[in-house]
Design a protein around this nucleic acid. Structure first.
Lengths: 150, 150
DNA sequence: ATTCGGGGTTCCCTGAAGGAACTCAAGGTG
DNA sequence: CACCTTGAGTTCCTTCAGGGAACCCCGAAT
């Protein structure tokens, strides 16, 4: 939709939205993350229109987030996350954390995440890359950076 | 856009997208986060259509992410983040981290974030809420939770 | 009495999402 | 060989949402 091109804005949020901002894109990424790598699998799981799924997959491949790999002599393909795509999933995990906390309701979270390193069910906790202390929205000051516009 | 209703899916990513998944919503949130609280300010800053901005603000207020406050005897309003909205900004900060790393290019990141606690320019680092070790996409195992469908 | 400025509405046009049907290539089956 | 099945799309049509510009309303200031 967004005819307005977010990718040209001097804002990393807008640029990230240029990659996964269109409807369905984050859900496509999630499906591939959890091991649904094929067109029909994703289409059936999400109930997305085949046309739109084709467009989204092509866009994500073009942006270097996914790779299209043949898995048979026949024209059969599956989509896998690149390193860039795998890091993008960290953004999805942040969404999960917020959604689990504020939108899950009585039933509790629909999906649990076990941290392999410690074996416990956990969620992501944003920390400062420098000092390791919690780093939330209210803990930061926003400054112009080297790539700022103008 | 998305005629498909993400809010009803048993997935916290989809539910979160039901709140900020529409085009512009994350950017509106960002603007309010950095202190642009008024309609015309946001509209001018983003170049968003007034009609769409009206819709997005109403949606975010309805979902409890923003609050509309009068700031004058005249009919003048500003939009401020609720606690729920402030935590949602953590998701935006995750986007910033990814965008800064993968999309900033030569010029470097357009915006810098100073962590007040340590005074350093930093970015968010997702950690396990249980053990504190790094928690990225490849470090977790996905399991069905109590609120799973079926 | 008129202008101004914030905060929206209304209108029309285009373009994107939904949905179903159709295509195409390669293997398997009788 | 003729036929069916599968995966992976493509085509076409309809409906609805975003873009853009103009318009409106209310209270204050001049």
């Amino acid at each position: 939709m967004q005819r307005t091109n977010f990718g040209d804005m001097a804002c990393s949020i807008a640029r990230t939205l240029d990659v996964i901002g269109e409807p369905w894109s984050p859900l496509v990424l999630r499906d591939i993350w959890v091991g649904m790598n094929r067109f029909d699998q994703i289409q059936a799981d999400l109930g997305i229109s085949r046309k739109v799924l084709t467009e989204r997959l092509a866009h994500l491949v073009e942006r270097g987030v996914l790779e299209k790999q043949a898995y048979d002599n026949r024209p059969r393909y599956e989509y896998v996350l690149t390193a860039k795509g795998l890091e993008l999933v960290d953004v999805l995990m942040a969404m999960v954390g917020w959604g689990d906390k504020w939108l899950a309701g009585e039933a509790g979270p629909p999906v649990l995440y076990r941290h392999r390193a410690c074996g416990e069910i956990a969620h992501v906790d944003p920390r400062c890359s420098h000092c390791g202390e919690p780093m939330h929205a209210e803990d930061v000051e926003v400054l112009a950076g080297p790539g700022s516009a103008g």
